[in-house]
């Protein structure tokens, strides 16, 4: 197993030192994911770098098709292998995920790393009971007897605060409400004590009130169990609730990254600024919500320059030349926009 991180360019070394010297739980370097069919190639992820420390919550924020879910799935190699080309490196707890053989990958999935999905109705097997599905995961990774696995499943349902857990164990997914289903999903993900939790829009399909409950539960469990977490969402409110750091994705690239408060209070990238402007918080009813004009680029034909340039109100000629390299205004505070130097200089003066 190759535990050596890929040699990083200077900017990334800055990013690496930003959080002191503790060992990163996740190191993703220059990740690209392409979906290749006979007709076309979709460039879903185009050079993504990030790291997550143990116990840290990174929120990947972006709209549909920005590559956030693909990034997450690539980390567990859940994308269809025949159509997917993954390049770059993914290291989780020192393991080179892209180089793992089938057996080691099976150990990693559900053991070291767990995933929670968006739609708990379709993400759970409809013809097995909740208890069986959780126990199955426990048996896979921890072994032991069926009875012990079932007892563990009960503990887990109690951990995620499912009322009447003992009875729910024998329920099928369709017999539970959306919120309870997602709690069961979380229980399953936590069953083998993962060090990294990947959450793919886990609250999007839920009612607003249930959403908050599940978020609070996730945040509490994440802290209690000290899991590193990558939380993918398109909801700024959710990100504000749960994240330590935010990475904003656009057209398969991280365009801005930083501590949650900095990114939400003082966004650097015009795209993040647009996202924030288009949310509703207490402005008058008469005012129109500001929307970002245009639509995301076609990932089959990405132009050379900044992918956001065609929609950007602050576009300059320089933007069309090449995708701006990551620029840092402070350690761990990054944006990929040509205007950063000017802004940073202005701030420094």
């Amino acid at each position: 197993m190759n535990a050596e991180p890929i040699p990083a360019i200077s900017a990334q070394q800055i990013a690496g030192t930003a959080f002191g010297h503790d060992e990163a739980l996740v190191e993703v370097r220059d990740l690209t994911v392409r979906f290749v069919t006979r007709e076309t190639t979709v460039h879903a992820v185009n050079g993504v770098n990030f790291s997550v420390r143990p116990g840290e919550v990174l929120c990947i924020l972006g709209e549909s098709g920005s590559g956030k879910s693909v990034t997450l799935r690539a980390m567990m190699r859940l994308l269809p292998p025949r159509r997917t080309r993954i390049e770059g490196s993914i290291a989780i707890d020192g393991q080179d995920v892209l180089a793992l053989d089938k057996r080691a990958l099976g150990e990693l999935r559900g053991g070291l790393v767990s995933m929670i999905f968006q739609e708990p109705m379709t993400a759970l097997d409809p013809v097995y009971t909740i208890g069986t599905q959780i126990a199955e995961t426990v048996l896979r990774h921890k072994g032991g007897s069926r009875a012990a696995a079932r007892a563990r499943a009960l503990e887990l349902l109690e951990l995620v605060k499912i009322p009447e857990a003992a009875r729910r164990l024998d329920n099928y997914p369709h017999e539970l409400s959306g919120g309870l289903r997602q709690r069961a999903m979380i229980a399953m993900a936590l069953s083998c004590g993962p060090r990294l939790l990947l959450a793919d829009e886990p609250t999007t399909a839920l009612d607003a009130t249930v959403q908050i409950q599940v978020l609070i539960l996730l945040r509490r469990l994440q802290r209690e169990l000290g899991m590193g977490t990558i939380f993918v969402t398109h909801d700024l409110g959710v990100a504000a609730e749960i994240a330590d750091r935010i990475a904003v994705m656009y057209a398969g690239r991280i365009v801005e990254e930083g501590p949650v408060a900095d990114v939400l209070r003082a966004p650097l990238h015009p795209y993040t600024q647009g996202l924030l402007a288009s949310t509703v918080h207490g402005q008058s009813r008469e005012r129109d919500i500001e929307a970002i004009p245009g639509s995301p680029p076609d990932l089959r034909r990405l132009a050379a320059g900044c992918a956001f340039a065609p929609r950007c109100g602050l576009v300059q000629s320089e933007c069309h030349a090449a995708m701006p390299e990551p620029r840092y205004t402070a350690a761990g505070r990054m944006a990929r926009c040509v205007r950063i130097t000017q802004a940073a200089l202005a701030a420094a003066e």
Binding site: M76, L78, L108, S114, M115, F117, A123, D125, Y128, E136
Partner: peptide, 24 residues
């Protein structure tokens, strides 16, 4: 279906996944 991804994400072997699929 989506749940097949969940089964793989749990670390189940391909044979165990197929067993779920056949039952479904």
């Amino acid at each position: 279906l989506d749940f097949v991804t969940t089964l793989r994400a749990k670390g189940l072997s391909e044979i165990a996944v197929i067993r779920h699929v056949l039952k479904n």
